[in-house]
């Protein structure tokens, strides 16, 4: 097979080929590329790599992971949309990218994608440093009310669900200062080092700091409490209606992918979700979620997009009114 003559033969046979030979192949017939829309080491990367590792034996082909980072994940998603919709290219589609569309970034929309499976889902939480004077969420909110805009909350950026939550708290009479950090590592270090007063993040990404006690959870932004943190108050208990911004991570393909291929992929992904290795992984990152059909998962993404859009329009009008 190392014979260069073989290469020449293939080259010559090109002329004889009529039309792409790819069209009638069965799925999957060659490696399925997993586009991770963020750099190595982050939550989306870990999810993509676990999926690739655990789904390879199920689909029976290699699943190389490709990190395409940039523009809140939109660079990788653009690449997915320009790949042939034959299921041999899949990508991670996460809440942050969806909210970035609502904020006007990129040119993608939920209808461009077909979500294959919901892999991880987790509410966001508010954390403080271990030496923080705030012991409960109520103390934190009271301090925010008394010193408007003085408390600093480390977030991932403006126009994200982090920002929406901070703006929502301000609209309810608890104004804090949003301090955006583009790099997650710097964001965590700033709260762990005591340079910011609180951190908005999903628990899985800061699990090691929660376990070591360097970060203390104060509040879950959800309607009910988190089963792993039964002592931490849910936002609804404080009459804050901001439980509709979950941090989900899905696997998606372009919208015009044939249904049977979507179904094959969805079956494989749902088998991954049932594997003990995955159960261990999602428990350690507090992101276990119920199994969903592609249609259900698609609906979560569409609803999330509409929710974020609604919030941003509301804040935009409020700002314009001032």
């Amino acid at each position: 097979m190392h014979n260069p003559l073989r290469l020449v033969a293939v080259g010559l046979s090109l002329a004889a080929l009529v039309g792409p030979a790819v069209a009638q192949e069965k799925f999957p017939s060659r490696p399925v590329e997993v586009i991770v829309t963020f750099g190595p080491g982050g939550g989306a990367d870990l999810m993509g790599r676990q999926v690739s590792r655990l789904a390879e034996p199920i689909l029976g082909v290699a699943m190389p992971v490709t990190n395409i980072s940039g523009a809140s994940g939109n660079a990788g998603l653009t690449r997915l949309l320009t790949s042939p919709p034959d299921g041999h290219t899949v990508a991670t589609l996460i809440a942050l990218s969806v909210s970035s569309w609502a904020a006007g970034l990129g040119s993608a929309k939920p209808d461009d994608f077909q979500v294959v499976a919901m892999m991880q889902n987790s509410p966001s939480m508010l954390f403080v440093n271990k030496n923080s004077p705030f012991k409960t969420a109520q103390e934190f909110l009271d301090a925010a009310k008394q010193n408007p805009g003085k408390l600093r909350v480390a977030t991932s950026g403006l126009g994200t669900q982090d920002d929406i939550t901070v703006r929502y708290l301000a609209s309810q009479g608890f104004p804090t200062k949003n301090v955006p950090f583009a790099k997650p590592a710097e964001r965590y270090a700033s709260t762990v080092g005591g340079h910011t007063d609180a951190l908005y993040e999903e628990p899985g990404d800061v699990a090691q700091f929660i376990k070591s006690g360097d970060l203390r959870p104060l509040l879950v932004f959800n309607d009910e409490r988190h089963e792993s943190f039964p002592d931490v108050m849910a936002s609804k208990e404080l009459d804050l209606a901001i439980g509709d911004l979950p941090n989900f991570r899905t696997i998606a393909v372009p919208a015009n992918t044939p249904d049977e291929i979507v179904q094959t992929l969805a079956d494989a992904m749902n088998q991954v979700l049932d594997k003990p290795e995955w159960k261990e992984f999602c428990a350690a990152t507090y992101t276990c979620t119920e199994t969903m059909s592609p249609e259900q998962a698609q609906k979560v993404v569409v609803d999330f997009h509409n929710t974020v859009k609604g919030y941003l329009e509301r804040f935009g009008q409020e700002q314009a009114a001032k």
Partner: peptide
């Protein structure tokens, strides 16, 4: 990433 994939979290712990 390599450590996290093996379930080892670097950090104070």
């Amino acid at each position: 990433a390599a450590m996290m994939l093996h379930g080892v979290s670097p950090g104070p712990l």
